[in-house]
Amino acid sequence: MMRRILPHPILAGLLLLLWLVLQQSAGFGHILLGALIAVLASLAANAVLPEPVTLRRPLKLVQLFAIAGLDIVRSNFAVLTVLLSRRPNPTSGFIEMKLELTNRFGLAILACLLTATPGSAWLEYDGERSIVLIHVFDLKDEAEWVATIKKRYESLLLEIFE
């Protein structure tokens, strides 16, 4: 019964929070209206999200975002120094790497984090062979990149989702 009304509790909770932040108020009316909208929206999302999101280790998400935030800051300055040079000519390149992660939400998070980092961009994922094509802005050592992504991101995502 609960599942019928609230198929995606995490999504609904986040939507309610978003609504309250947007309204800048936590009054009773806003909570009521926000909850109604969140439930309706999560019901609508049921059509496109067939499987419910399950987080095995939700707290690890915080760690993941902290690591990603740090990497994004570092990458911003790295790209900035390249761009400020007289002739920006980084040695960019493509990386193909095999992922053990197969959970769709985990892959989506990994894709967004890698693309949000200025130094790397997720181009394409081949689901059959579970190989991802990544473009790196300043590629010095391909093996190091693969190892970094595996160690810093994939292992955490595997813990969270699988």
């Binding site: 911003n76 980084p90 980092t117 200025p118 961009a121």
Partner: peptide, 23 residues
């Protein structure tokens, strides 16, 4: 500015993320 100066598309795709992430 990087978007305007970099030489090919796959490089340019990295440039706007500076504005959207940390900038």
């Amino acid at each position: 500015v990087g978007l305007a100066r970099l030489r090919d598309f796959y490089l340019r795709i990295h440039a706007p993320t500076m504005g959207t992430s940390m900038g």
